[in-house]
């Protein structure tokens, strides 16, 4: 499981994060493999978002490495980081679309910055990307004219503008109704299968985890790191760890010694 092999696209090595003297997590190591959907779970405050922010180069860790194609993006310079950022896409919790721009302009931005494409090619690519997220025809809409689910999908279209190798999605289904969240899950699976994009997803929705995750990483606040790693159903049925059990069986901690009921 551990160690770098040909399938590894991002390797996280001995990562530690602190806010002042407050230790968020320590010695976290794992890898993101080519084409997989990796889901990171854990209670609020366990450092999921911090971990993701370090992995996308927005936060500096206390110690450790994040290797992309063998290069540490933490210690490397601006140009390496820029290269890395062209190879990843990020969907923020609220979509983070630029509200003053139309969807076309939002998606156009990375294409104009990083490629030498002719305007008509860019226009076609935008149409294609919007079609991929089922928003065909919405290029002249502003984000404020879209619903929450549509904003997320438009965010995915923008994150996918450069066909990144890895897509990071923060709190994928937060604030969405179950039907919209399920549609988003389908979109993630379809994109992953068709384009082979690796995905790193932070979510709490069990249903969605069973549906989309190839592998689950579970962080724990008190343990200060990863307490479980594996396929979601394996974790559900084979774990002996009460913390993992309580998450997958949706039990209160004191009930986790016995499996009384579950909702999934």
């Amino acid at each position: 499981m551990n160690g770098e092999n040909d399938d590894t696209i991002i390797a996280v090595e001995n990562l530690s994060a602190r806010f002042g003297s407050n230790i968020i997590f320590e010695n976290v190591s794992f890898e993101v493999r080519k084409g997989e959907i990796l889901v990171i779970v854990g209670e609020s405050g366990c450092g999921k978002s911090t971990l993701m922010k370090i992995m996308i180069g927005l936060l500096h860790p206390h110690a450790g490495k994040v290797l992309f194609q063998g290069t540490d993006i933490i210690s490397s310079g601006e140009s390496q980081l820029k290269h890395y950022r062209q190879n990843i896409g990020v969907l923020f919790q609220s979509g983070a679309l630029f509200s003053s721009m139309t969807l076309r302009e939002n998606i156009e931005l990375p294409l104009q910055e990083y490629t030498d494409l002719a305007p008509e090619d860019i226009a076609m690519i935008i149409k294609m990307k919007l079609g991929m997220v089922n928003l065909a025809g919405y290029e002249n809409h502003h984000p404020s004219e879209l619903s929450g689910g549509m904003k997320k999908r438009a965010g995915i279209a923008r994150a996918m503008a450069l066909d990144p190798q890895v897509l990071f999605l923060d709190e994928l289904s937060a604030g969405l109704d179950p039907v919209t969240a399920a549609e988003l899950d389908d979109l993630i699976i379809k994109t992953n299968e068709a384009l082979g994009t690796s995905m790193v997803i932070v979510t709490h929705e069990l249903e969605s985890i069973y549906k989309i995750a190839d592998r689950v990483l579970m962080l724990d606040k008190n343990a200060g790191g990863i307490i479980a790693e594996g396929k979601p159903l394996d974790l559900k049925h084979q774990t002996t760890d009460p913390r993992v059990k309580s998450f997958f069986w949706r039990l209160k901690p004191d009930e986790s010694s016995e499996q009384r009921f579950y909702v999934s």
Binding site: T102, G131, M132, A136, G137, N140, T191, E193, A194, L195
Partner: peptide, 19 residues
Amino acid sequence: GILSVIHDDALTRPPIKHP
């Protein structure tokens, strides 16, 4: 896989809203 997600309909559909 990639060709399967490119829908001809999406490429030709005119924008719903005109600036």
